[in-house]
Nucleic acid binder design. Structure first.
Lengths: 246, 246
DNA sequence: TTAAATACCGACCGTCGGTCTGTAATAGGG
DNA sequence: CCCTATTACAGACCGACGGTCGGTATTTAA
């Protein structure tokens, strides 16, 4: 009734399996989200990047927000799987395994320094609240149970003495999440021309953080040690060198 | 050119001072946000509730998000002012004043149980991420410096022994913020018909939380005590009785 | 008294998430 | 191998909503 001719197709498009198509769209979305943020990316952008039409997109995803869940939970699963693997292949007491787990998550983050750098920038910009909230939620969902189980293990072994395993797990995750803001400020400082000061501050921060975790677990100071403060500070401050262009 | 007649005005409207008009719009927005959430409230809704036009609204606020900042920072300022007042009029050592401060914030929340109840419902519903994030940010902005100052005081007095005052302050605020989710679950449980179990769980939670704060501040167990766990649990569980209709 | 500034009005607009109708590609039974 | 059902996809269209703009009423100041 409305279309006289309905045949100006573009190309005879090769078809992917649903899973591959879904993954391809998620890949495109991930790149765009980390580059431009949540609000700034329209579904039209994702459509162009993934080279698919509106109809095709909404065939695989029910809404724009589905992209978030997909991207974020994929990342969180990868991170926790890596950390869990590292912990499992570690022989030693509960504390040693605990440190191995946290060290692995830090390593995972270090390997993704570029994305992290983008995230650190994004949290300053409005319109990304949803993205950040979903990242935090996914991290919590994935990490808290793992931590809680390890803490219970340690308590059963008689090494940890947490007032409440779940609450302690949540507190630890909260600490690592709010580290993001410290990192952001440090990156700003490093960009402003004081990289060594930023590195020192980050090192001091991670030292204080591990001291807090000692206390939360009822351990003597210096028990928890999943990274070298100086190294950590330097590594994070180095992130500021590679600049992001929007 | 496009409007033949431009005179069908509605009413000769009394004019308010800019501050009063702004406050009136904020009042309307606050009611709506806590009743329906962020995404569900359109500026048109606010316009109707505040009985003002689009043009008038955008004369006082630059964007819908300005409403959030206004509403949220107003609330946070009120809360902290109340808590600070309570602390100042308290004679005693740093720990006593600390407890007075936290007790006052709890009392302030209890007085606003209705709004809190709405918030506890809202965090389940999508579209409120921005609202919640802003509330958290405002709470952090307002409370962390106050806590940090008190912790430094206590450390100077030789009573507290925090590894890092600012970090400890942030950890404490993180704990109180994440309490929201515990409260949400408890309310759900109470609504589902197990109010006494919910009260018990809330009591246990706040007990564990204060124990954590003891440790963070380097105090012996039982030092921090800003509410009675049983009372707190009961009070919060009671909130579930009054139901919210959307 | 009058001109400038301020408060306010409401029609209009652009963008963007989401829908709908219809078509090409695949799967499967005969 | 054809024919049909189903799935994957295309793209025009829509409605909602945040925000703008030209204009009008009210207040202030000179």
């Amino acid at each position: 009734m409305l279309s006289e001719d309905t045949h100006p197709r573009t190309a005879p498009r090769r078809r992917l399996t649903p899973e591959d198509r879904r993954a391809a769209i998620l890949d495109a979305a991930q790149v765009l989200f980390f580059a431009k943020g949540w609000d700034a990316v329209t579904v039209a952008d994702v459509l162009a990047e993934a080279r698919i039409s509106k109809g095709g997109f909404y065939h695989h995803f029910s809404a724009k927000e589905d992209l978030l869940d997909g991207v974020v939970s994929r990342l969180a699963e990868q991170a926790v799987a890596a950390a869990e693997a590292s912990r499992r292949q570690c022989e030693g007491d509960a504390l040693t395994r605990f440190n191995a787990f946290l060290a692995a998550t830090n390593r995972w983050k270090a390997e993704r320094a570029t994305e992290l750098r983008f995230i650190a920038d994004m949290i300053r910009r409005p319109g990304n609240e949803l993205l950040l909230q979903r990242i935090d939620a996914a991290v919590r969902r994935a990490v808290v149970p793992a931590l809680e189980a390890m803490i219970r293990d340690g308590a059963a072994e008689g090494r940890f003495d947490p007032p409440d395993p779940k609450l302690v797990a949540e507190a630890i995750v909260s600490l690592t999440i709010s580290r993001r803001e410290v990192l952001r400020d440090a990156i700003a400082a490093a960009d402003a021309g004081a990289p060594e000061a930023a590195a020192a501050r980050l090192g001091a921060h991670i030292a204080a953080e591990t001291a807090l975790v000692d206390r939360l677990l009822g351990l003597p100071p210096g028990s928890v040690h999943y990274c070298d403060p100086a190294e950590f500070g330097q590594m994070m401050a180095d992130m500021a060198c590679g600049h992001a262009a929007y």
